[in-house]
Design a binder for these strands. Structure first.
Length: 301
DNA sequence: CACTAAACCTGGGAGC
DNA sequence: TGCTCCCAGGTTTAGT
């Protein structure tokens, strides 16, 4: 999926479109999308109805992001939590035809806003000023409705999440201590949302490259200097990616004419077999922590 | 408890 | 053209 920069870009793009707009009606076309988050989820009509009825005529009064989750706050205190997983998309189609749409998420299918809804549209929000479509080719994502703050809190959805990399609370000391208490390879720890949230396969590799550290290193062997380089790489890359609207690898992100341009700055992701932009060494590929990983054996040696 | 593999899905791309 | 096989930005769950 979209990683932190893509979800944050989506949040920023969505805000001016739907903030203080009323949800006139919601149509759930696939029950399991709104019925839970596990791999074994069974869609229930009950959940879908609760969602459809609960959000009706509510204003969207805010949009927050936590890790890779998006949270829509409603007028009556209810919350809608959206996780796009690998291929989820939220696309806003304005009633004003000339206004550009907003697409985020991740599937390499060119998607025309004019052709929405399509066969992968599973939830449709009818707004006063347009329509918000949730599309998800692989159907891994989910949209959860919490009628009030209490339900949301009790769900403990965020209880295991670590620090936001953009926040001031995420400090070198914390990061250093976390790495020292974890075992295993660096890439695994960077992907571990219990330490620092928001990194996925793209940014974990990019961070390792920028820091000059091999992703397959055991974290127990990292020096203080290397830890600091990794920390600084996270602190530089994530905001830079947000600034550029995230990585549009094969999909599209259109908001006020902008596209996600961080993919142009990728140094290693999807570049195995190509020469390193810094030293010319052919970039290597390996499976690390169960994910395809690309690195430069010279720069990160 | 820690680690790995499989599961959840569809479709694009490579190779034949 | 069409068939196979592999791969995909994430996370949960089952198995060792």
């Amino acid at each position: 999926m979209p990683e932190l920069p893509e979800v944050e870009s989506l949040r920023l793009g969505l805000l001016p479109k739907v903030l203080n707009q009323k949800i006139k009606k919601v149509e759930v076309r696939m029950l399991k999308i709104v019925s839970g988050k596990g791999t074994k989820r069974e869609g229930t009509l009950e959940k879908a109805k609760e969602f459809e009825n609960g959000v009706k005529n509510q204003l969207i009064v805010g949009i927050e992001r936590r890790a890779k989750n998006l949270v829509l706050n409603l007028d009556d205190g209810a919350k809608i939590l959206v996780h796009l997983k690998m291929t989820g998309q939220l696309v806003f189609k304005s009633k004003n035809q000339d206004e550009p749409g907003l697409i985020s998420g991740g599937h390499p299918i060119e998607l025309s806003v004019k052709e929405l809804p399509n066969k992968h549209t599973y939830v449709i929000f009818e707004m006063e000023n347009g329509t918000l479509f949730y599309n998800d080719v692989r159907q891994f994502g989910y949209i959860l409705y919490y009628p009030n703050e209490k339900c949301f809190g009790e769900s403990c959805h965020f209880k295991d999440l670590g620090y936001e990399p953009l926040s001031e609370d995420f400090t070198l000391d914390f990061f250093s201590n976390s790495l020292k208490t974890k075992k295993g390879v660096l890439k695994k720890v960077l992907l571990d949302q219990k330490v620092v949230v928001g990194l996925g396969n793209i940014y974990a590799d990019e961070v390792c490259f920028e820091a000059g550290v091999l992703p397959g290193r055991q974290v127990s062997t990292l020096t203080n200097q290397e830890i600091e380089k990794l920390f600084k790489a996270i602190k530089r890359i994530i905001p830079r990616a947000v600034e550029l609207g995230g990585s549009s690898v094969a999909n599209y992100l259109l908001a006020d004419g902008k596209r996600g341009n961080y993919a142009h700055e990728h140094k290693v992701y999807k570049k195995a077999g190509k020469p390193c932009q810094v030293c010319g060494t052919i970039l290597s590929k390996a499976e690390i922590a169960g994910r395809t990983t690309v690195f430069c054996t010279k720069c990160q040696g």
